[in-house]
Nucleic acid binder design. Structure first.
Lengths: 207, 207
DNA sequence: ATTTGGTTTAACCATTTGGTCAAATTTAAA
DNA sequence: TTTAAATTTGACCAAATGGTTAAACCAAAT
């Protein structure tokens, strides 16, 4: 049945996702993925010819979870403060749902810096530059209007992403050192951050 | 000679550092480390009985680069704004000198969240809690004095570290997407951040 | 000159790992 | 029912990998 096939493929991808995200490309074992998917190792190679192909697929899937929302928000016509609010809320939620992805991505960034860029450009295509330019234009307009203090768009974007993503990436340290490794406390800390980060950023840039 | 011995050990640690930081624990190969150190693989095992022992040593060295300065700054008697300035300046410098370390650390965080915590606690020892408390007390005092707006110390610390560390960790993406992958531009971007991050943070928390 | 201790090497080894292949099984079509 | 195609499996393989060992080497002390 086609259903069986889909099932197998889904089981493989789920298992691969789990193993790759936790152990990285080099740490992952095809055997472990096969076991976790409840199938034979040969079947794994039947569906994905090599470890690399499988990894690429999983990596692509991971990255694409985050791109559409970003595009949607950045391309929308809202004023900057609203965009910020949307971005921060949506991404903290998204990251809470997929906590392993940022570490996973950063992991592979070290190993192969070009790889992600290719994927990124494939997903964002030509818009990439226009994207940045659009946000830049908007920000500089709001500066002229006197809503914002003069600010460098690149630094601002970097800061917002840093404030949202870093607490997920560094969770084990922060949770350990500042929250006595209490998972629940850290979860509510992350929830608090939605409001906190937003006002932190706005405070800093508003006139 | 003792000199020869030191030489070999240094060569080993340098090579190991390079390979581990770029490829992670699982991606690194003992043979590659030996080659890069210009020695035999057996000699590697003579100095460090196993890959794990060698890795632990390298990891420890990496982490300890960042801890003393942090302690020094946090334990000093300066007012908060000066502490912030010191921290941001020193850490952006330190990270520029050791750009691979944050990614390296985060890498291993996924694989073994407990490992870093142990090292951290070994280095920071009992002070750990007192450290946080001290900063907290100072901040809440300055809030009372009316220098700062009311603020959660944990969020503030998280934010500052995020703003400083994240641009190093995510360098390949940010440099690629926002700087057309131009290394020099990104280097000056990092330098600019010293002033930018400081005023960004202070703007946000000052009354 | 000989012994002694640490250092370095080459040759090996057992295990793991990604990957293959031919046969068996299942599914869908004729 | 037969046939053809896709799916799944178990047995197997070559290469890579971390690690061992016994012997060679070498500097310094006796």
């Amino acid at each position: 049945m086609d259903n069986q096939q889909k099932d197998t493929e889904i089981k493989i991808l789920d298992a691969a996702k789990e193993v790759f995200q936790q152990k990285g490309m080099t740490g992952a074992r095809m055997q472990e993925i096969a076991d976790k998917a409840g199938i034979n190792k040969s079947l794994l190679h039947y569906y994905y010819r090599s470890k690399e192909k499988l990894f690429e697929k999983v990596f692509n899937m991971a990255v694409s979870i985050f791109i559409p929302k970003m595009l949607e928000i950045m391309l929308s016509e809202k004023p900057l403060f609203e965009k910020l609010e949307f971005f921060i809320n949506n991404y903290i939620d998204l990251l809470t749902k997929h906590p392993y992805i940022p570490g996973f991505v950063i992991n592979e960034l070290n190993r192969n810096p070009q790889f992600l860029l290719n994927i990124f450009e494939k997903n964002v295509q030509i818009k990439e530059k226009k994207l940045f330019e659009r946000v830049d234009v908007q920000i500089q307009e709001e500066v002229k209007k006197g809503i914002l203090n003069p600010i460098d768009t690149r630094h601002l974007i970097t800061n917002v992403i840093a404030l949202v993503v870093f607490p997920m990436v560094a969770r084990p340290i922060i949770q350990g050192v500042m929250f006595e490794n209490d998972k629940k406390q850290y979860d509510s800390f992350l929830k608090e951050r939605k409001a906190f980060v937003l006002s932190f950023v706005i405070n800093s840039i508003k006139v």
